[in-house]
Structure formats: C-alpha cells, structure tokens
Design a protein around this nucleic acid. Structure first.
Lengths: 209, 209
DNA sequence: CAGGCCGCTGTGGTCTGACCACTAGATTTC
DNA sequence: GAAATCTAGTGGTCAGACCACAGCGGCCTG
C-alpha cells in the first residue's frame, strides 16, 4: 500500500520507474538494463507486470530484448516514452529549428509528389478552393499533403505540423496569388518553379514580423 | 514461405492477429474487442501473452481498457508520434509502398542537408569507415542521418527505417564503390550528382532479386 | 409499487511458480 | 591450445489462482 505514484496500473508505474532509473543511472543506448527478475524484485511487483511494461516499450522501439542475453536500451534521443507520458520537449531553440526545417522538407517532398502524380483535376479543384475560401497556411498544406497519396508522409506532416504550430512562429500573411501561382506551376508539372515559389513564400512569411 | 507470420515472439503475433481481426470485423473506435480470456483462447496462446500485446497497444494509445468492463478501440487520429504506429496497424498493402517511398524521400533530404552543411572532415571520416568496415545499407544511412544535424529528421528516419526493415525485401548488394562515389559527390557539394547516384543504387537494389 | 440491498457473473489487474529456449562464459576434455 | 561440454543467467510462455470493479438481475423492505 505504499504511495503509488500513479495510475493504478502497475505496468505504467514500472514504465515510469524505468524512466527514472534510466535517467538516474544515465544509461545510454546499448546499455543493458537489469533482468526482468531483478526489476520485479527491485520494484516489488510481479514479473508479469514488469514484462507488460517492457513489451510496451519494446513495441515503441525504446528497448530491445535478446533472449538469453538481456534487455538493452535502444535509440534514445528524446525517447518517445517521455512524450507519451506527457512530458513535452518543445523548449529549446534547436528543436524549433529542426521542426520548421523538417516541416519545410516534407512540404517540398509533398510538392514534388503532387507535381508528379496528382491529376490536373485535383489541382484545379484546389485552385478553386483557394479562390473561394479564406484559409490558414496550414490548411493549404494539409490539402497538399492529402493530395500526395502517401498516407504515411501525410501523417508525418500532420504530426510535425501540430508540433510546429504549438510553438508558433508568426504565420505571416501570404497572398492568394502566391498560392495560385504555386498551383499553376504544379499544374504545368514544373517542379522546380513550384518549389522556388514555395521558398519565396517562406521568406516572405518570416520577413514581416 | 513468403509471408512469415510468426516472429518468434507470441505477443507480436497477437498484435498482428488483433490487427487483422479488427480489419476483418471492421471494428471502429469505440467498439469493444473480445475479452483477454477469449482472445487467449481463440489465438491459442496464454493470457499473459495476450496481455503483453494489449498493454503495448494501450501504451500506444490504440486501445483503452476499463476494468470490469472490457477493452475498447480508441480514436487514434490525435496521437502525436504514436500516430505513426497507428498507420502501421491499420492498413497493410499500401503501407509498404508508402514506407519505402517515404524512406527514400527522407534519405534524399538528408543527403541534401549533408551536402550543404557537413564538414569535409565528417564526410572523409565516413569514407574511411566505408573502406574499412563491412556494413549493411541501413548502417550507412544511419550515419548519413546522424551527420545531418537535424535530430528530428534523424529520428523520423529511424522510425521509418525500423518499420521498413521488418517487412524488408532482400537488401540487394551494393558495392562499396557506389557509396564512395556518393560520398565523393557530397564532398564536392554536388547535390544533384549525389542524389543521382543514390537513385541508381536504389534501382540496383531492387533489380537483383 | 418504488427504492435499495445483495450477490452473481464477467472483465481487467496482478502475482506466483513452473518450464522452455537460448546465450555466454567457465570447465573439462582431448 | 583447441574443441567439446556444462552451467548459470536471461528472456519467452503458460497455467492457475486471487483481487477489484462494473453491470445485471433478483429479492427484500418500506
């Protein structure tokens, strides 16, 4: 009956305990963590609970287990674990830069794909939408991301974008003409011009703050 | 034996079985899935294995369990990085293509960045490594991903790669010369040539199968 | 009849102890 | 010294036992 830190689910406690343990002992990727039996012992929980935690972390790619050898820490960097537990990382500057750079790269990738595969009809429909509605820059690229029919890339964009959005850099105002000319290039399958237009847009956005 | 289902870890099989079951029965968010005991029975595995799978999915945010009631499918859509994994479970065929395409795009992005920012020294060090060691294609791009100093992009690559790898098609043999010439172009900051070399490599890899 | 109490039953949550399969290192054997 | 062998430690799996909780229905009481 000790004061359990949290959620009435032991395995989550174990996850948390592991996190602290890893942090406290400053274990690095490749390092071995104690055996299941020892953890079970150390945390005073059943081995099955330890296993549930470990299996979950394994599926997340945070640890790696090798039968007969042990359990090892895998790519670390900001463990996804931390995010899952609600600890967010958007603090330092570098992360910000990485976010916007990554976002930019993905958007360009999407443009490339769209320039290559999207039907003229799809693009025209998008142009009509641009003319008709009022919208946020995100909305525009969401549509681009959807047009590119790679669901995974679309997801990645959504994720990156959602992070990028929280920590907002000022979204400068971009004029409809810019979007339209970008789309026009896409329609003409002129990948390079489209990207160029995109980059100019970026520059404008960060300029007027 | 083309499709190997059993990955030697029962709980992973269960995860897979659950995926198919959900797909087959077209279960939607909010729907209840069979009890642990029934699943254990249906899949002919121990309940603990079922639980390991369920706990992992729970930590991923894909399902939700309520004691005394049951286990339910959750509304994914909004799960940060975890979303990635969601994709992994939900579709199947298309995902493979998306995975390799995305991987390719990211690798090219990394190459671009490296061509632009990496120091000559770093690249030379990589060349030395190529000459000296035996390695897998993944290892090479892992190093490229690390060289590009965008941690986020590196991380996305790792994730995508780890998934792409599981389902992998034979990694054709690429010769060291190819890597070396690629690196040479990077050293000369010749982005286009480097990417061209990269693409040729891809073609070779899928050819000899 | 209404309201509430009670106890089933089914479900997840947890622990224990027992095996198996495998790895690595120590030990023995040649 | 090298090869074969044994052994301890580790993850993988299972079966069975409880517990805690939610939901349902029946029974008692006012």
């Amino acid at each position: 009956m000790a004061g359990r830190t949290s959620s009435s689910k032991i395995y989550l406690d174990v996850v948390e305990s592991l996190r602290s343990m890893i942090e406290a002992d400053s274990l690095l990727p490749g390092d071995k963590i104690p055996s299941e039996r020892e953890l079970s012992d150390r945390f005073n929980v059943g081995r099955s609970s330890v296993r549930e935690a470990l299996r979950a972390l394994e599926l997340l790619g945070l640890i790696e287990t090798r039968r007969g050898e042990g359990t090892f820490i895998r790519d670390f960097q900001e463990h996804k674990l931390v995010e899952l537990l609600g600890t967010f990382f958007l603090q330092d500057k570098k992360v910000q830069e990485d976010l916007s750079e990554t976002k930019r790269l993905i958007e360009i990738d999407c443009l490339r794909i769209v320039a290559f595969f999207a039907t003229a009809e799809d693009i025209k429909r998008l142009m009509a939408w641009v003319k008709a509605d009022e919208f946020h820059d995100d909305d525009f690229f969401l549509r681009i991301a959807i047009l590119n029919r790679n669901r995974l890339l679309e997801r990645i964009w959504r994720i990156v974008n959602s992070y990028a959005r929280t920590s907002e850099m000022v979204q400068g105002n971009v004029k409809k003409e810019d979007y339209l000319s970008l789309l026009t290039y896409l329609l003409e399958r002129d990948e390079e011009k489209a990207i160029e237009t995109y980059l100019i847009r970026i520059r404008n956005m960060s300029k007027d703050e």
